[in-house]
Simulated scan of single mutants.
Amino acid sequence: MLISVLVTFLVVILVLYLINLLPLDGRAKQIARVVVIILGVISLLKYIAVI
């Protein structure tokens, strides 16, 4: 379980970094960041067995 949580956390960080590199306007980057963070939190809650 700990490895799954760590991998999920690293994937979320990597995707946020890659979103930062995209040539998008600020609003689109903000929406993409929020979506990635929400998906990351949901997947972490699944690993912890809350959902």
Rank of each mutant, 00 (worst) to 15 (best):
L24Y: 05
I51A: 15
K29D: 10
S4Q: 12
T8K: 06
L24H: 02
V34D: 10
I48V: 14
V35E: 00
D25N: 15
I19V: 14
L6E: 13
V12C: 12
S43Y: 10
I3T: 09
A49E: 12
V5H: 08
N20G: 04
V36R: 00
D25R: 13
T8V: 07
I38A: 15
S43C: 06
S43D: 09
A28W: 08
I48K: 09
I13D: 06
R27C: 03
I51N: 04
I48Q: 06
T8Y: 03
V15E: 03
L44G: 05
K29I: 07
G26C: 06
R33V: 02
L10D: 10
D25Q: 11
L6Y: 06
L2F: 05
R33A: 12
I31F: 11
I13N: 05
L6K: 15
V50M: 05
I48E: 10
V5I: 10
I37R: 05
L14V: 11
I31H: 12
L22P: 01
V36Q: 01
V7L: 09
A32F: 11
V35G: 00
V35C: 04
D25L: 07
V11A: 10
L45K: 09
I13V: 13
K46S: 12
L6F: 09
I13R: 15
Y17V: 08
S43G: 07
I3Q: 09
V50I: 08
S4P: 14
V34W: 14
I38E: 02
I19R: 01
K29M: 11
V15R: 02
A28N: 07
D25E: 14
L10E: 09
I42D: 04
I38N: 01
Q30S: 14
P23D: 11
V35I: 15
L44N: 02
L39N: 04
I38T: 15
L44R: 03
F9Q: 11
L10C: 12
L21I: 03
N20V: 00
I37K: 04
L21K: 08
I31S: 12
V12D: 01
I48Y: 15
I13M: 09
I48G: 12
V34S: 15
L2I: 14
L6P: 00
V5P: 02
V7C: 02
D25T: 11
V11D: 05
L45Q: 13
I37Q: 01
V50T: 05
G26F: 10
L39S: 13
A32R: 04
K29C: 05
L44K: 00
P23T: 05
V34G: 12
L21C: 03
I3N: 06
R27E: 08
G40K: 07
V50G: 01
L39P: 01
V41D: 06
N20C: 01
V50F: 08
I51C: 02
